[in-house]
Amino acid sequence: MTAAVETAALTKRFGARPALDGVDLVVEEGAVFGVIGPNGAGKTTLMRLMLDILRPTSGSVRVLGEEPRAGGPALRRRIGFLPGELRLESRITGRELLRHFAEISGPVERGAAEALADRLGLDLGRQVRTLSKGNKQKLGLVQAFLHRPRLLVLDEPTSGLDPLVQQEFLAMLREARQGGQTVFLSSHVLSEIQQAADRVAILRAGRVVVVSDVESLRETAVRRVRVGVAAGSEGGLRAVLEALPNVTGLSFGAEDHRVRAAATVEGAIDPFIKAIARFPVADLTVEEPDLEESVLRLYGERIGDGERAGDGERAGDGERAGDGERAAHPSSPLHGGHRGTGKRGAR
């Protein structure tokens, strides 16, 4: 397969400040590729380079086999783009705006705009400047999907969408992939797109830290577990769990006639299950793996050696799992999970 997007040593500086610093990425055609990173990591810059809104300082980028500047309007007609900061302030209605975009990026199937708007629950009859942030985002998504482009470039597509609409959006992504479209999307939280993406790249301070497929991330996944065993087993349980190499962040608590343990299991869950099987297990909770945490862990291992001072806090997470991590999170596993859980629960 040819690559839908290919960058080589792609660098973009604004003045002296590098926004992208030697990025090498390949996005296969037909893939759903996610770029994850905090604000300012360079995600938006990368996408703007793909659309010829910005020009590279050095290095190269090819989109659908063409260099964006040389590809010009004909290339951009094959791309659907959702900007990260969508500012729609005009008095025209959503329908008129979409008709305009259909004219310059068409052809568009008859009724496509209405169908997409219906799906996302968007009223096309209202002036776009009066729309709420979430509804503007929906309009942005509609204009990106409208002409069924070969490549969708979506900057923070889920921002401002409520959970139900996010679900509909993820369904649209799946259909796009089934239809052979390539999707390149960004988010600052992996949990929002891990269900949709095949591969993810982690971007920090303008550099690609990790590129991984979501499946192998799942294999190295970090899971939060909680187990309750009958009173009196605490000493034995502690000894057994401490002996497991992939269990960290152990904590214990006692209730009436029960001992509760919470821990973080990295990678395979099997040794943990086998280990607790010898105790009378009263209850067991294994949370769905949080891929973001896995990624941060990988990230911590790769450049945790103080390569970037500003990221020291994050990088340390990987090494000091357990307590360090829990301190950094708003809630502890003992009190009903970690970030991401709530979002998943709401879907």
Partner: peptide, 12 residues
């Protein structure tokens, strides 16, 4: 106001 970016992302 950010509108030019969106226009130029289309086929013009």
């Amino acid at each position: 106001n950010g509108a030019l970016e969106l226009t130029l992302a289309h086929g013009v």
